[in-house]
Design a protein around this nucleic acid. Structure first.
Lengths: 194, 194, 194, 194
DNA sequence: GATGAATGAGATTTCATTCAT
DNA sequence: AATGAATGAAATCTCATTCAT
């Protein structure tokens, strides 16, 4: 072990693969380039990942892992939702690569069970958190209109996925969603728009 | 000319390519297979499309063209919106291939200017129609809450894009969106869910 | 017959092919481009030349035909030789394409009997003329040193072929050859050099 | 590494490519055949030479390298020239392939800078050697007629290039050249002719 | 863990040629 | 004479993967 930490090379490779996917899509992912980016021979890459699919699976985990940072912290439902959407908006703006790769993974998951599993796991966690927040809010009657938590969860998730690739419109969509769910923000959120 | 109709072969090739993309993604698009699907030699394909990109560009047009069918007809804003979402929900359920390819195209457009142009053209038309409907509704005060048409348009588009790949949850997201925008349907639209 | 003159298209095609060979070598000769240069469909070219080889054969004839212009006119041997070399030097400088294609043809002739025949015919005529001049000069004792016409012919031909591709040094080589054969020019031909 | 010697495969490939060019010209150079000749898969060839041009460049070096063997050794100018021409005549007769490929390279160099550079380097060395010999001879007054070394060099090079493809006439041209430059041999060297 | 050579399957593209119209 | 569609052979190059060292 040269680096001293086990799996360091592995991590470097995953990060490099992630970067390549963000830039060129899975269509343009080349193991040789990934190895080169890390500074090792391309055949050495196979010591860490037996097949390309294995590496792709690791990229899926690596990518989804970052989204835990967007989990809401606040105990108050309306604040938690606002917080969550704000965190996601920041990610969309600051780390578009993460969102692009998520979109790539959703498509890739259609043909790659390992990726599908990783994405489902990721979404399951997300759904759970969101449904919790929405249910709490419903129980406390904080939403502008009565919503069914499970159903509203899908709308929130859909909205996020729908603006993944277009940071330009993310703020608007989120703002409108908040306005409809939480209310009161409909006409006074101009400062948020770009 | 075997079929006698000009460009028939071209159309067949585009349709075949579309099918392959729907199944395997652009990642898995192979000109040889496309030609085989149509029953011609793969070198003849280059007689109709000089490069792969040209074929892909044609697929982009072919795909987006189908979405005109989902344009709302009704003159009444609330009905038009409902109609539009219903039509889209039907497409998502009956023609998942169209939606999948749209998602593929959005990603491909990031590296292929011809595709990007086709998608932007498509979206511009969609935006225009939606904003028209939403503005009309706002003028007539039919929405549950005051909305800014341009902003709400982004939410609708995002929602559609967000459920493109998951017919399973499309109905729920659309139902919630309608409930929030039009009102009255909140929680009692279980009949729509599968 | 559109052009009114029989074989006009044929001639155009040969000329276009010649130009392509001059530019890109036989390596880069493409029937499609030749047809395009002339403004006809590439399959129409086959009405004029059944195969590529046929066209190449025609190019060989076309090219060698131009060299009759360099045949010496003068009756006086020394003047005839000088005249001949001067004419060739002018061709090398003004029509490098002709010389380049000749070099291409010499190589191509190694694998293409039709080309080989054309080139041999061309060289046979050249040899005859040159040997005639050199023999006449020998009979009249005009050469600086006694030469055997047939042998000296080879030296002259070799010299010309040897500078075919390098107009830059053609004058020098010819000047030196004249100086050795005719004499007297060894030190006073500076005006000829570039 | 099978052979144990670094670059052995590379050398084999260059030699095989050289042979193919000698036989079929650059026009007929096929990487697949070259690889086959050496007994490796054609894709492995790309491991050693990234592109065809790279291989062609190596062939240029390989070919020109052989001509050092024809450099004159003798210190005496007339002997050195005679020696040089004799060595070249032997090469033309014994290794016509080397001369043919040189002719191919001169033509290819018109479109391939790497080849052009190799050929120019080769010729520069040749010119230097020849001019040295001719200058020494001029200083010692050993030539039949006063010659300017740089100019005469071009005549010698042109003559060699001019008979490259026709071993049949090489002896005659060289003999005549020697006779004119060195003198004394004019017309009585029949023994050399075939 | 790392390397370089090798593989084999395959991808896009090119091109001379043919054929029906 | 001309065209456009089609063909099939082939060419260069790519890439994931394997193996011996």
């Amino acid at each position: 072990m040269v680096g001293g930490v086990q799996g360091e090379r592995r991590d470097q490779l995953v990060a490099a693969a992630f970067r390549r996917v963000a830039e060129m899509g899975f269509e343009g992912l080349r193991l040789r380039q990934v190895a080169e980016d890390v500074g090792i021979d391309h055949s050495t890459l196979h010591h860490h990942f037996a097949t390309k699919q294995d590496l792709v699976g690791a990229v899926a985990e690596y990518t989804t892992r970052h989204f835990w940072a967007a989990a809401p912290q606040s105990a108050e439902p309306a604040a938690a939702l606002r917080e969550h959407l704000a965190a996601l908006r920041r990610m969309i703006e600051d780390r578009p690569d993460l969102l692009v790769v998520t979109a790539e993974l959703d498509l890739r998951g259609r043909r790659d069970p390992a990726v599908a599993a990783a994405m489902e796991h990721h979404e399951a966690g997300w759904r759970e958190v969101l449904t919790g927040v929405l249910a709490a809010g419903a129980a406390q009657g904080v939403w502008a209109r009565p919503v069914e938590p499970v159903v509203a969860t899908e709308l929130v998730i859909a909205t996020v996925k729908g603006v993944r690739l277009t940071p330009r419109v993310a703020a608007q969509a989120f703002e409108q969603l908040e306005a409809l769910l939480i209310g009161g923000a409909s006409g006074n959120a101009e400062g948020e728009r770009q």
